[in-house]
Amino acid sequence: MIHFLRTAGEPQFAELIRNVTVTLGREVVLSCVVDNLAEYKVGWLRAEDETILSLHRRVVTHNPRVAVTTRVSVGSSQQSRTWNVLHIRKVKESDEGCYVCQINTFVMMKQVGCIRVQVPPNIVDESTSDVSVNEFDNVTLVCKATGKPVPRIVWRREDGQNNMIPINPQWNATSFISSSWHRGRVKVDDENEEKLRLYGVTRRMMAVYLCIASNDVPPIVSKRIVLKVNFAPLVTTTTNQIADGVLGIEIRLTCQIESHPPSLNHWMKRDRNNSITAVLPRKYSVKDEKLNSPSNYKTNTMLTIHDIQPEDVRNSYICVAVNLMGQAEASIPFYDV
């Protein structure tokens, strides 16, 4: 309890207590400056519940994060000025509120200063984890973040291909800028842009998406969400035809495959009687090479034919790709010159 004294000369507050904004975990300081304090005492209270924190130089709360310091100076007029400073270390959200500096004069004198606690953004576990969908399905990616002020959410592709994210994220669906993305539409909704809705997803939308949360309180945080788009293989040849005047040399045939999940690839050969058999080692070698595409769903499969002989040029060669979504193939024929 703070006791009150009677005296002829009473103290005066020299300046207002400044309100303070502090980041979670930092130290906050409120200064109560009094002229002519003399034998009076200064105390600090929590305004919300009137919990007494300190009396003069002594901390009475059991909170180990609270401390009080006092400094006195005497001017040329012999008038003293006292700084009674409240320190709260490792600030928590629960410390937010107003604090009262009061002097135990007969008619109690008091001032109030307030603390506002800012909390860095944090992405909560309710956000979307990695997602796998079939091509042309719809999917919604969700990213929820807490913090004070309320965090803003921005969506980006990790590979930098952000032309498919609308510049003005409103409720209206926005077409992709590039015509090659014509199947997909995207919109960002909710007040805090927590949801990224993708419509009719295509293989080109398969990527790592970044949910970035910020509220001007460092640090900015982000979460990676991997979107996998499943589709049946598509096989195209980069070698259309092979001339038969290539006897005795080595030649390489190449097919490009788009697939997800990644396909199992193999080569077959078809003779002029339309009989299909597998290619065998020694005479043939097969190599798959993953292409460095943004979504990493493209592969080149290559068949090398060693020491071509007349029986080799009587065949056409077939590259075959198989995954859980289906199968596809392409044929590369020889032709006479």
Rank of each mutant, 00 (worst) to 15 (best):
L196V: 11
R204I: 11
H182W: 03
Y209G: 05
N163E: 13
V188G: 06
N192L: 13
K187V: 10
G160C: 02
V186D: 01
N172T: 01
E158N: 13
K187W: 13
G184W: 02
R157M: 12
M205T: 00
P166N: 09
E158P: 01
Q161F: 01
E191R: 15
D159E: 09
R185M: 07
W181N: 11
D190G: 13
G200E: 08
I165K: 07
N172H: 01
K195I: 07
T174A: 13
R157D: 08
T202S: 08
D159Y: 07
I177Y: 02
G160T: 02
V208T: 12
V208E: 02
Q161Y: 05
Y209L: 01
W155R: 02
W171I: 06
Y209D: 03
R183I: 00
V188Q: 05
H182T: 04
H182Q: 07
P166L: 03
Y199N: 09
R156G: 02
R197W: 03
W171F: 14
I165P: 05
N172A: 00
K195E: 09
I167G: 06
E158T: 05
Y199C: 01
N168C: 07
E158M: 08
K187C: 09
M164H: 08
L198F: 06
N168V: 07
P166A: 10
M206A: 07
K187T: 12
R203D: 11
M164T: 10
R204E: 15
S180V: 00
N172C: 00
V201M: 08
A173L: 15
N163G: 13
R185S: 08
R197Y: 04
S180H: 00
A173N: 11
E193W: 09
A207T: 07
G160K: 06
A207Y: 01
N162A: 13
N172Y: 00
R157V: 11
T202Q: 05
V201N: 13
I165A: 05
N192Y: 15
I177F: 02
A207K: 04
K195G: 01
V154G: 06
N162V: 12
Q170D: 06
R197K: 09
Y199S: 09
R183H: 06
S179L: 03
P169I: 02
R203P: 09
W155F: 00
I165L: 10
N192H: 14
E194R: 12
A173E: 08
W171P: 08
Q170V: 03
P166H: 10
S178H: 08
V154L: 09
R204M: 13
N163H: 11
K187R: 15
W171D: 14
L196G: 11
E194C: 03
S178A: 15
Q161R: 12
V154C: 04
G200I: 02
V188P: 06
Y209A: 01
V188T: 11
F176E: 05
N163V: 11
D190Q: 15
Q170W: 04
R157K: 15
M206E: 12
S179Y: 02
R204H: 14
M164N: 14
S178E: 14
N162G: 13
S180M: 00
N172D: 04
I177L: 08
N192S: 14
R204Y: 09
R156H: 07
S175T: 10
S178G: 12
